[in-house]
């Protein structure tokens, strides 16, 4: 029973990933693409988590943490680029 639920949720998560990939390619403006990239990272992370429940393994926890950290840093970098026009500032701005 629980196996069927997990497999169905994996299928729906892959649908969600395809939808965000469509927005990532088609998205008219840059903020659309950044949000699609962030949502793609979160969907990928939850897919890995459900897969690790499905195969009853704890070997994927490092993958989950790494995807979370890299998605967080990437989103911050893109947001700074959109907001300020520069990713890493040279001096204290205020």
């Amino acid at each position: 029973m629980i196996q069927t639920i997990l497999i169905y949720s994996l299928v729906f998560l892959s649908f969600a990933i395809f939808a965000t990939i469509y927005r990532l390619i088609k998205g008219p403006t840059a903020p659309d693409r950044v949000q699609a990239l962030d949502a793609l990272g979160i969907n990928l992370l939850s897919g890995v988590a459900i897969f690790s429940v499905l195969v009853r393994s704890t070997g994927f926890f490092e993958v989950i943490l790494l995807i979370g950290i890299l998605s967080f840093i990437g989103t911050i970098a893109f947001a700074r680029y959109i907001e300020r026009g520069v990713v890493i500032e040279r001096k204290q701005s205020d």
Binding site: L66, I69, I73, I76, A77, I88
Partner: peptide, 27 residues
């Protein structure tokens, strides 16, 4: 187990990059 010098160094570098992003180069 999964891990090692290469990926440990990359995670360490990503923490330093987060510092560079939140603050600035001089600080």
């Amino acid at each position: 187990q999964p891990g090692g010098g290469f990926i440990g160094g990359l995670a360490f570098a990503s923490a330093l990059i987060l510092l560079f992003l939140a603050f600035d180069i001089e600080t």
